[in-house]
């Protein structure tokens, strides 16, 4: 594991902002602009062939959205987490859906619920929510019951029966 991080560090100097270790898991905090390069290197040269998950977290006080990739090598059973902090005003990161097929829907989910843009994604649409939904529910400021408009939303076709 240590040499993976070392090679990444030597290959992409300055890309790794921080290395966090907790409960035996390593997290590399990577600059947003270089995530794709680092992940591509991990896949092609280090054998991390399995993308387990893409997730995200919103930190309103820090004004950032984290996008988290969990990659794994099925051969050596190593697992690594890549986290990248994106600014809240403009959360954009390059897609990795061409590296792993898994990323396609996972990125769409993050886009739908968290509002992160993935440049280069072939088909970035909402996946969980209807197309006419506004906002991104997993952001902290979004109320759980939906905002005022959406809370009492009834699909147009079904409306008249309510009267």
């Amino acid at each position: 594991m240590a040499d993976v991080i070392q090679t990444v560090q030597s290959k992409f100097p300055g890309a790794i902002l921080e290395i966090v270790e907790y409960q035996g898991e390593r997290t590399l905090v990577v600059q947003p602009g270089r995530v794709r390069a680092v992940l591509g290197h991990l896949k092609q040269s280090e054998g991390f062939n399995f993308l387990a998950d893409i997730s995200s977290a919103h930190w309103p006080e820090e004004g950032r959205i984290d996008v988290v990739y969990i990659v794994r090598s099925l051969k050596s059973r190593e697992q690594l987490r890549i986290r990248t902090p994106l600014p809240i005003e403009d959360p954009v990161v390059e897609t990795v859906s061409d590296l792993w097929g898994t990323a396609d829907w996972l990125e769409r989910e993050v886009y739908d619920l968290m509002g992160v843009q993935f440049t280069g994604h072939p088909d970035l649409r909402r996946i969980m929510l209807p197309e006419d939904f506004e906002g991104h529910p997993l952001r902290k400021e979004y109320p759980m019951e939906g905002d005022d408009e959406w809370r009492n939303y009834v699909p147009p076709e079904t409306r008249e029966n309510r009267e």
């Binding site: 998950d53 997730s55 995200s56 977290a57 969990i70 898994t102 829907w105 996972l106």
Partner: peptide, 26 residues
Amino acid sequence: GFYLVGSGTNVAHRCHFRAPSYINLQ
């Protein structure tokens, strides 16, 4: 999979589930 981020309280800051059905269906 469960991706949890702590918040300092008994509520998770972020609770993401890696759902196998979702990814298999893809």
